[in-house]
């Protein structure tokens, strides 16, 4: 195990995070605050409680998930795409380092950044609405698991992408819509039966539902299903990465 290499990649990526800390934190904090102003204050004041939870508090887990998913994907995809773009990837490919160590370094750093960001958004949200967290350990577990899973997904996108546009493509056109339609701002029980069934095909529903359960103890789907679905997606991402490194896909000629 080349621990020095994993540490080197992790610290190198984290250095990039600290360097861009201001942008990294300010923009999600501002957009979260805007969501609170619009959804929480303007609309939420006219909304009834959902499952006995004030609307302002109800949307907090979904908002954190939204940032967590998009940030994990963009951090990890940029982290691996940028060295491919500049050519500095040659060094990683020629180093005495295994696939696992490369992925652990890049994905670990991307997930760390997302988790920090998620906690900052949680703290920001606490300024707007009174929050309770019924299962703090489960909350942290979901936070970390989702960050890792979607950082792995981002890593795959970063290897697949052949331009900066493609890098933005999946987060903007797939993940954001799925998150909005995945019960971030409503309970899928509020939907007509047909749409509710369709929603169950949206993987983000399970993430948001499980995460919300860790806050309020209520969920759209059973917590066990949420955990299982998250693990399934994690497994798919790991399989994708294993395939990439076995075939050298877009990394090695």
């Amino acid at each position: 195990m080349n621990l020095h290499a994993m540490k080197a990649i992790y610290l190198f990526e984290m250095a990039r995070t600290w360097r861009t800390l201001w942008q990294s934190i300010v923009s999600p904090v501002i957009s979260t605050s805007l969501y609170f102003v619009v959804f929480g204050a303007a609309i939420g004041s006219r909304m009834q409680e959902i499952d006995g939870i004030a609307y302002g508090a109800f949307i907090v887990p979904g908002l954190i998930m939204l940032s967590l998913l998009t940030q994990s994907i963009s951090n990890a995809s940029f982290g691996i795409y940028f060295p491919r773009f500049t050519g500095t990837i040659y060094e990683v490919l020629s180093a005495p380092i295994s696939t696992f160590e490369i992925v652990a370094g890049y994905v670990g750093a991307a997930a760390t950044k997302s988790v920090i960001l998620g906690l900052i958004i949680l703290a920001t949200a606490a300024l707007f609405v009174p929050l309770r967290i019924e299962h703090p350990l489960w909350m942290l577990a979901f936070l970390v698991l989702t960050a890792v899973t979607f950082s792995l997904f981002g890593f795959i996108i970063g290897i697949w992408a052949e331009g900066f546009e493609q890098l933005q493509f999946i987060p903007m056109l797939v993940v954001t819509p799925l998150t909005f339609l995945g019960g971030s701002f409503y309970s899928i029980d509020m939907l007509p039966p047909l749409w509710r069934t369709i929603s169950l095909f949206n993987p983000v529903v399970y993430l948001v539902s499980g995460f919300r359960w860790s806050f309020f103890g209520t969920a759209d789907v059973h917590i066990g299903v949420s955990v299982a679905m998250t693990l399934v997606f994690l497994g798919l991402c790991l399989a994708g990465i294993a395939w990439i490194f076995r075939t050298g896909y877009r990394l090695k000629a």
Partner: peptide, 18 residues
Amino acid sequence: DSFESVWATVTFSRGLFG
């Protein structure tokens, strides 16, 4: 790595090679 310092990038390389 355009945005890195000379020291950081050389230190990174050493670590990368274990």
